[in-house]
Design a protein around this nucleic acid. Sequence first.
DNA 1: AATTTATTGTAGCGGGTGCTACATAGTCTT
DNA 2: AAGACTATGTAGCACCCGCTACAATAAATT
Lengths: 178, 178
Amino acid sequence: MSKETLLPLLAGHVLEHGLGGASLRPLALAAGTSDRMLIYHFGNKEALIADLLAYLAGLYSAALEAGMGETRAKTRQECVARILALGRDPAMQPFLVLWWEIVAGASRGVAGYREAGHSMMAQLLEWLEGQLPIDDPDPVGGARYLLAFIEGSMMLNVVGHTRTAREGLLASDLGGQR
Amino acid sequence: MSKETLLPLLAGHVLEHGLGGASLRPLALAAGTSDRMLIYHFGNKEALIADLLAYLAGLYSAALEAGMGETRAKTRQECVARILALGRDPAMQPFLVLWWEIVAGASRGVAGYREAGHSMMAQLLEWLEGQLPIDDPDPVGGARYLLAFIEGSMMLNVVGHTRTAREGLLASDLGGQR
DNA sequence: AATTTATTGTAGCGGGTGCTACATAGTCTT
DNA sequence: AAGACTATGTAGCACCCGCTACAATAAATT
């Protein structure tokens, strides 16, 4: 067994049980090995987490591509609706939970978290640009604007402010009426 | 020494060293007691964290009031600029770091985190409504809209997407030109 | 065939975790 | 004055943590 065969199993465990609280022995059990071997392959836990974060960023990219619609949205509203729907997809839920854990780690300065978060947001940004209407007057700026708004809305949902998020969306025209 | 005198000291430690990784003995040391006494006063760690989260929400409210400007902003742009500046204030930094930890806990379903996060966002929302221009056409919806956008921008900053956040802000008119 | 190298198991170390048992001193009530 | 209640210190338990020392096996290399 090598790193490459271990990483998917480790990622599965982390997506289910969290990243911060993960410890070697449960991680090893989920991957069918021992803590002894995890250290052998990765050197130490910090390196393991770093490799795992990179692998998870790749997984996230794949999940985004799988969730990408065949056609572009016709309006920014439709585009936002699509991505918010993607966020409600149960299959994406473990990623979202993990996502806020990564943000928290990045904020506290834990090694590797900022980089992983940056990478995942860059991928989402690129995906979002490709989802904007073809005739959008400012796809580059628009994607950045919508990204901030969407992620803020998702955070509000997480802390139970679903109504706040919805009413915020209604109060905005997403730059679409100009 | 009672709960009431303990909580400010505990909050200070948590603001400096984080909430998730906090354990009884360091917490007690920071408050000038023993783990033994923390359990005595709060029952168990979970109850201690719950009390601490409630106290921190109150602290956050006080910090907001202290950071509130004397006058209202004249435009939504100025309003957003003010709150983003407040977020860059070093005095607010520990709160922001703690904030993302609360969001992560809420997302993972840790007891009490969702409630604390909800309370803090409700306070920020109220504060934001009071900061909007007097002649704003839709203060209620506008505050919700701006809140989502601002929080999304702050998250982008945390993961190193400062440029993305800034360009998103430039691409939006914040509903101000209609 | 001998030797090195890669992979794995077993056992354990030092330290941190939440929490508890027990004793003690002071204070308050009857 | 006697007993009850409150607050606190000391010591420790059972468990989890990352990590390591040592040994064993098997494969590859010389």
